[in-house]
Amino acid sequence: MARYDHLQLVRLPERFERRKHGGGSPPPDRDLAAHSTRLETELDAAIATQQRRRKAEFVDPSLILRVHMSGQLLEEQWEQLGLTVLSSDLDRSLVLFASTDEMQEFRRRLAVWKAGIPEGKKAPSYNGFIATIESIGAVEPRDRIGVRFREDGFTESSDFEDNTPYLVDLELWDLGERRLRERKLEQTEAYIKARDGEVLDRYIGPSITMARIRVSGALLKTLIAISVRQSRWPALGCQAHF
């Protein structure tokens, strides 16, 4: 039987330091009606996209969004809305998880901001938050391809060849409870094995859940197209061999 080195994990340092107090550039000037309408339209489109994907197998109801900001990432503001920050990237974007599609508190703040400047104030309510949101969208398959793949030129799912085997370290997004991560990892492994993939190793730590898998390019394309609840699914972070 072939032997494999045990899964070795390297954690990248946090790319952005959370900033809880002031500072940074002032929010850009926005046309209230145009900006709020665009954000509402983008949010509705992202929700519709994810709802269509739920028709595929192995997809739980949830909402995962990618949001681009113009300045500070304002992670604490998103967390106040009940969202979980899954990751932040160098392009000033956040990946966010919500347990439902409603986004009611965000829509309320957007409506209050759109209503204009309250009497006695100099700017609309929530201006420092809403005005700094550049765009809202669904997480795409290319967003789930990790650094080492991208360094080797794999930037889109179409870059993987269907009949080529790939050795991949797959990381599930961490939403907290270990039992949930264990269950999701078991579901993921069962899904892979049922489609002739191999699970070579696994690791479940305090804040990271990973599996080393060998799969065909066709199955890999399927995996990076799936959005699932309660998981960082999948951040294909570490390419070894193929």
Rank of each mutant, 00 (worst) to 15 (best):
G23W: 03
G23R: 15
G23I: 12
G24K: 13
P26R: 15
P26Q: 14
P28N: 15
D31A: 14
D31L: 03
S36M: 11
S36E: 00
R38Q: 13
L39Q: 08
L39E: 00
E40I: 13
E40Y: 02
L43K: 12
D44H: 06
D44L: 08
I47Q: 04
T49S: 06
Q50E: 08
R53V: 04
R53F: 07
R53L: 10
R54E: 09
A56I: 03
E57N: 03
F58Y: 06
V59S: 12
D60C: 00
S62M: 00
S62A: 14
L63R: 02
V67I: 15
H68D: 13
M69S: 13
G71Q: 14
G71W: 11
Q72E: 13
E75Y: 01
E75S: 06
E75R: 05
E76D: 10
E79M: 05
L81I: 11
S87R: 04
S87H: 04
S87G: 05
S87I: 01
S88A: 13
L90H: 05
D91M: 13
S93I: 11
L96D: 02
S99N: 07
T100M: 09
T100I: 01
D101Y: 05
M103K: 04
M103T: 14
M103N: 02
Q104N: 08
E105G: 01
R108W: 04
R108M: 08
W113H: 14
W113Y: 15
W113M: 07
G116F: 06
G120T: 09
G120Q: 13
G120V: 13
K121S: 11
K122V: 12
A123T: 15
P124C: 05
S125P: 01
Y126G: 11
G128M: 06
G128A: 12
F129W: 10
T132D: 10
I133D: 11
I133G: 06
S135P: 07
G137N: 01
E140R: 01
E140N: 11
R144I: 08
I145D: 07
I145V: 12
I145M: 07
G146N: 09
R150H: 02
R150E: 07
R150W: 05
E151K: 12
E151D: 04
E151L: 11
E151C: 06
E156I: 00
S157Q: 07
S158A: 14
D159Y: 02
F160E: 07
F160N: 09
E161F: 03
N163V: 11
Y166H: 12
